[in-house]
Design a protein around this nucleic acid. Structure first.
Lengths: 128, 128
DNA sequence: TCAGTGTACTATAATAAATAATACAGATAA
DNA sequence: TTATCTGTATTATTTATTATAGTACACTGA
């Protein structure tokens, strides 16, 4: 469900944030679904509970989840907004990288061909 | 020539590495051109000489530059290879991000439209 | 000779990240 | 009620990386 890359430069708590956002946006986690408890997830991932706490705290601060003392943490109501934000961030990255590729004299149609390959691979991997 | 973003998560020495690679690939620096000396660049950027030394050492280890004791550091002969490596890295990023955008249901043609916008802006900014 | 080069080395400081260990308040089921 | 699960807060410590500071040495070329 959530995989941690200890060799990554990205901190563990950020990897957890990104993973949970991804699970929400992809529909695996739906509105008001309960997340694993701080201690349980910490045990599953074999990391410190404080690290989970930090991730959950940030997710709540962003409005992605909400937490009830004594109850647990749950998926918030801003899924659509979250999806749009994530789309916009990725689009922005595509834009910047494309600019660099243009500087490097890579033909535009070649970049679009790569985009197409990615889409074909992604769609080919659905419902096998 | 080289700008340092102190707020960036990327370490200064890596920013220097990337900047010099960019200057080489873009043609500003050509083969056997002399780079600023360790101490001079450190003074210009107002950072520690050891940080420059680390960057230059890594660039030499990668074969991007070569250094002669008592002489200075110079652009190496692998410009074409460097350019291809950089292209390949960016292409790989495009591929991965496109996969994520596909998962997020963003139409393929919309991504390609962004690529096109980036190319138009880039080319429009040439020789004004 | 002398100023400028790369290079090496040790030590220290600064920062962020992660861990460790508690503690407390609220919720819920036995 | 009690026990156990939740989230939350707090402090201290460890670890790793980065950057700085200072020094030293060998080489080059004017």
């Amino acid at each position: 469900m959530i995989l941690i890359d200890y060799k990554s430069r990205k901190p563990i708590y950020e990897q957890i944030i990104d993973s949970i956002k991804s699970l929400i946006v992809s529909g695996v986690l739906e509105r008001d679904d309960q997340l694993p408890s701080v201690r349980q997830l910490a045990q599953e991932l074999a990391i410190n509970p404080n690290t989970i706490q930090k991730a959950y705290g940030e997710l709540e601060r962003e409005g992605v989840i909400y937490s009830l003392k004594g109850r647990g943490s749950f998926v918030g109501s801003g899924i659509q907004e979250l999806r749009m934000v994530q789309q916009q961030e990725l689009i922005e990255q595509i834009f910047e990288i494309s600019g660099e590729l243009c500087e490097l004299q890579v033909p535009q149609q070649e970049v679009c061909a790569v985009v197409q390959r990615a889409y074909e691979q992604e769609k080919g991997g659905l419902n096998p």
